[in-house]
């Protein structure tokens, strides 16, 4: 057998690559924290529910969670603007180099972070190293209908485009790569480029406030690139140099 000894090469920071490919803008000022994205994501990506005890112990499987904090005490109490936190699809992702088996790996063609479920051996190092804490682990066999008989009928809802994960596997937001792939495939079959706004992840699709915008960040005319150009924009934990692909627009009274 001819063995290909080529190891995936970690990309350098050439200007071109820094431009990125897919990106997201989340406007915290109009996010109402309604959790539609959370539910939509779960339905699209076959995310299991874990039950009350595990949910209360930090084992929820949400790929996107909405954070909020309290400031001050009554009556001057304020809630910080809702902040949906999902995988930031870092260009220089801390989760990637620590995986011993390349299960957490960068997709060079799409410039997003991948989690290859079937390669994952469950060391959970990537989750430790993720500064955003957006990786979730299948602590139990949450999807096994033999162990959870209530799933027998519920599993009819599973999306056939997305792998159903079993115990011991790390997972995270994929920017709905099945939708990206589907749209790319359609565009290719029609002999054209992917149009702006054609790829819509489940969260952005559901968001009643239209607070989530998704698209190509390397295209300066795309909706997402335009939305990101504002003084309100920032990246989460920018100081770590992870080059996230999700831009947050600050909430509150900033113009």
């Amino acid at each position: 057998m001819a063995t290909d000894l080529q190891l995936p090469v970690f990309t350098n920071n050439s200007e071109n690559e820094l431009a990125g490919r897919w990106g997201m803008v989340i406007d915290q000022d109009i996010c109402t924290g309604c959790q539609a994205c959370v539910a939509a994501c779960a339905m699209e990506n076959n995310i299991p529910f874990v039950g009350e005890a595990d949910a209360g112990y930090g084992r929820t499987m949400h790929w996107i969670r909405i954070e909020r904090f309290w400031q001050g005490t009554f009556p001057e109490v304020k809630m910080t603007p809702y902040q949906p936190v999902l995988c930031q699809q870092c260009h220089k992702a801390p989760c990637e180099p620590v995986c011993p088996v390349f299960a957490s790996v960068h997709s060079v063609s799409e410039d997003i972070n991948l989690q290859v479920y079937n390669r994952c051996v469950g060391t959970r190092y990537c989750a430790n190293n993720c500064p955003y804490q957006v990786r979730v682990f299948n602590w139990r066999d949450y999807t096994d209908a033999r162990q959870r008989p209530e799933l027998v009928t519920l599993q009819n809802q599973l999306n056939p485009d997305v792998t159903v994960r079993r115990r011991g596997v790390m997972e995270k937001c994929t920017f709905c790569i099945q939708r990206i792939r589907h749209v790319e495939d359609t565009a290719q079959s029609e002999g054209r480029d992917v149009r702006d706004g054609e790829v819509v992840p489940a969260c952005a699709q559901a968001c009643p406030a239209d607070a989530i915008v998704f698209g190509r960040v390397d295209d300066p005319t795309s909706k997402v690139s335009k939305a990101a150009i504002t003084s309100r924009g920032s990246h989460m934990l920018e100081e770590l140099g992870t080059l996230p692909r999700v831009t947050y627009l600050a909430g509150g009274s900033a113009q």
């Binding site: 008989p149 009928t153 599993q155 009819n156 809802q157 559901a206």
Partner: peptide, 29 residues
């Protein structure tokens, strides 16, 4: 999967969490 109807004048293609979970009613054990 539940998606919003983009033409529908009430929600213009958007849904809430309850709407998304309606499949769990359909396939409720």
């Amino acid at each position: 999967k539940v998606e919003g109807n983009p033409d529908h004048p009430v929600n213009l293609g958007k849904t809430c969490a309850r709407g998304q979970a309606t499949l769990h009613g359909l396939y409720n054990p």
